[in-house]
Simulated assay, not measured.
Amino acid sequence: MMRLLRVELHRLFSRQVVLLLMVAAVVVPLLMLVAVAREARPVTPEELADAEAVYAQQLADWEETGEEQVAQCEADEEREREASGQEVDFGCEFITAPELEWFLRPVPTFAADVERLLSALSPLLLAVGLAIGATFTAAEFATGSMGMWLTFEPRRLRVYATKLAAPALAFGLVALAAAALFVAGDWFILDSADLTAGTTAATWTSVGWMVLRIGGLGLLAALLSAALGFLVRHTAGVLGIGIGYLVVELVVRGLVPASQPWLVSVNVASWVQHGTTYYLETCAADGQGGVLCEVADRTVSFGHSALYLLVLTAVVVGLGALAFRRRDVR
């Protein structure tokens, strides 16, 4: 089994398209680090002068009409409360005097932004992993290599297992390395700009687990798409399924908002972030002939998303194994 796995890893890295995709997985975090470096630049005198000019104008307007704005907001809030008979909050307490910081370019800090940026990186790595797994296995059927390979190793389940394990293990490590590279680069850039204040041991623990989860996501993505390659037997077909699913998900999300805990994108976000929230609007009759709607945030736990993604991958892998055992290979 290990000999077959070594052979498959060699075949994987001998494919030029796979190598290009692996390189892309490393280039993407480097490009993100370039953006971080641009944002971490100190505020220039020109930017400060422009911000101060806008701030002075806004402050003058506030001093002239601020109390009137707050009073009007509170009056509208009270009028709506009396009309609806419900508790209403227009957020009048947030109408306050402007501050200079509002008009300055936001400067990132490591503790506040690293996990947000890792969350943005993960879908890009997911896409690369899906492409690698699909092109590795589907190409074996398109070129006829699979039939020839079975003449050397006729035990199909062993062949199937190693052809899935090779891209999964390889890209899992690449995704892990890409996420770790981004974290190291982000720290170096922001530490050089004195923007790492507030970073604690808890921050590093959370970031470390997030990097590991991104590595695991890369492994699952390559594993699932490699199994789809056995089912569809064409790279374009696998990629078409992925694109088609995204379109369907957008439609379902809009038509049935309550379906969000069962959408792949939501569960991927929950996996990476160790739990996520989404917003759901619910409406009911108010007893006076009208309709009262409220928006509440709902939680998708990490346990839910982990079980969802693992079961989804297991089902696809199982179907791929069944198809490979029973279908002819030419």
Rank of each mutant, 00 (worst) to 15 (best):
V7P: 02
H10N: 13
R11D: 07
F13L: 14
F13A: 11
S14E: 04
R15Y: 05
L21Y: 12
V23A: 15
V34N: 04
A37V: 07
R38S: 13
E39R: 15
E39A: 13
A40P: 01
A40M: 01
P42H: 14
V43A: 09
T44C: 09
P45K: 13
E46F: 03
E47Q: 12
L48R: 15
E52R: 15
A53H: 11
V54Q: 08
Q57G: 01
Q57Y: 10
Q58E: 13
L59H: 07
A60P: 12
W62N: 04
W62V: 07
E74V: 01
A75M: 08
E78L: 11
A83K: 15
D89H: 11
G91I: 01
E93N: 06
A97R: 10
L100D: 10
L100K: 09
F103Q: 13
E115D: 05
L117V: 09
A120V: 05
L121K: 07
L121H: 02
S122A: 15
L124F: 11
A127I: 14
L130P: 04
I132V: 11
A134Y: 01
T135L: 00
F136L: 07
T137D: 02
T137S: 04
A142R: 09
V159E: 08
Y160Q: 08
A161K: 15
K163N: 15
L164C: 04
A166W: 10
A168Q: 05
L169K: 03
A170M: 06
A170R: 10
G172D: 06
L176W: 13
A178P: 02
A179Q: 09
V183F: 03
V183I: 09
V183A: 14
A184V: 14
A184L: 13
G185N: 09
D186P: 03
I189G: 12
D191T: 04
D194A: 12
D194S: 05
L195C: 00
W204L: 09
T205P: 00
V207I: 06
W209I: 00
V211D: 06
V211T: 03
I214V: 12
G215P: 05
L219P: 03
A222H: 02
L228I: 12
L231N: 05
H234C: 08
A236K: 03
A236R: 09
L239C: 02
I243Q: 04
G244K: 10
Y245Q: 12
V247L: 14
E249G: 01
L250P: 03
V252A: 04
L255V: 12
V256F: 04
Q260N: 10
Q260R: 14
W262E: 12
N267F: 03
A269D: 07
S270A: 15
W271P: 02
V272W: 13
V272D: 10
G275T: 03
G275N: 05
T277L: 06
Y278P: 13
Y279K: 08
T282R: 08
A285P: 05
D286P: 03
G289Q: 01
V291F: 10
E294C: 02
E294Y: 03
V295L: 09
D297S: 14
D297I: 07
V300Q: 15
V300E: 13
G303V: 06
S305P: 14
L307F: 08
L307C: 10
Y308E: 11
L310F: 12
V311F: 11
T313W: 09
A314D: 06
V316I: 13
V317L: 04
L319K: 08
L319P: 03
L322C: 05
A323D: 06
